[in-house]
């Protein structure tokens, strides 16, 4: 069996690592726009209008059924075609990362709206009624009572979608984006695929720690702001003790 070239591995690792910034930038922007879409979908879902909430449900289920590569290709090939055909706008100068961000914003729009819905439903109905009882308006009840608690209920899921996004985003290499995986794929190809083992180990050792760190961070945040603690009114006490 041939030996593992540690020097090549190290060289690749150092060369690929800076491309984490590309990965993180599409993760960040997809989350940002995804949350925007998600808020829209959630509002539609709870709007009480049957057509709007049906449309929101259809959007969520369709997004659930589509493999990432398929939507990625659809956006990558379809959007420029549509822009050119309908509006006469050329998208030739638009960077590949834009298509990646659009694709994953659409996906995250569906998943974040599911998370928001779950978070909203996690806060008991009695809380809203209590809010009205003490004389708060609908909006006040929402942003003072429901929202702070719903956000806490959402935290573990938000961690999961960030991890999901980092991993699924790797598929952007199929449309030629140079992110972590894309760069690794290219480096390996340039060397005639002779150092596949080194490349793959390097890639795994970039992605894996990212996930582990994110999992730890979110577990920590979750513990800090846990809903159960807050309801029991122990939050301040606990943090005081820890100090």
């Amino acid at each position: 069996m041939r030996t593992f070239h540690w020097d090549i591995f190290l060289k690749f690792y150092i060369e690929i690592l800076p491309y984490l910034s590309v990965t993180f930038s599409y993760v960040f922007f997809s989350l940002l726009f995804g949350f925007g879409i998600g808020i829209g979908i959630t509002v539609m879902k709870f709007s009480g209008k049957r057509i709007l909430s049906a449309l929101a449900s259809i959007y969520i289920s369709v997004m659930r059924c589509v493999p990432s590569v398929v939507l990625l290709f659809l956006i990558y090939y379809g959007l420029p075609m549509m822009m050119k055909g309908e509006f006469g706008i050329s998208m030739d100068h638009i960077g590949t990362i834009v298509y990646v961000i659009i694709t994953f914003s659409l996906f995250l729009g569906a998943s974040t709206s599911e998370i928001m819905r779950a978070g909203y439903l996690a806060v008991g109905k009695g809380q809203r009624e209590a809010g009205y009882m003490v004389g708060l308006s609908g909006w006040q009840t929402f942003y003072r009572i429901i929202f702070p608690q719903a956000v806490r209920a959402c935290i573990p899921n938000i961690g999961n979608i960030i991890i999901y996004m980092i991993k699924e985003g790797a598929l952007a290499y199929t449309i030629g984006l140079q992110d972590v995986l894309g760069r690794g794929y290219q480096l390996n190809s340039l060397k005639g695929n002779a150092y596949s083992a080194e490349t793959y180990v390097a890639l795994a050792l970039i992605y894996w720690p990212c996930t582990i760190i994110l999992e730890k961070v979110f577990a920590y945040i979750e513990k800090k702001v846990s809903l159960a603690d807050m309801i029991a009114g122990q939050k301040t006490e606990v943090s005081m003790e820890e100090i």
Partner: peptide, 25 residues
């Protein structure tokens, strides 16, 4: 943890490009 922490496409690369080579060796 490893499977949860790496993209599925990377797992595919490893199995498809690397495993046969190692097995053959």
């Amino acid at each position: 943890s490893l499977i949860r922490g790496t993209p599925i496409i990377l797992q595919i690369f490893v199995i498809y490009n690397l495993m046969p080579y190692l097995l053959q060796k």
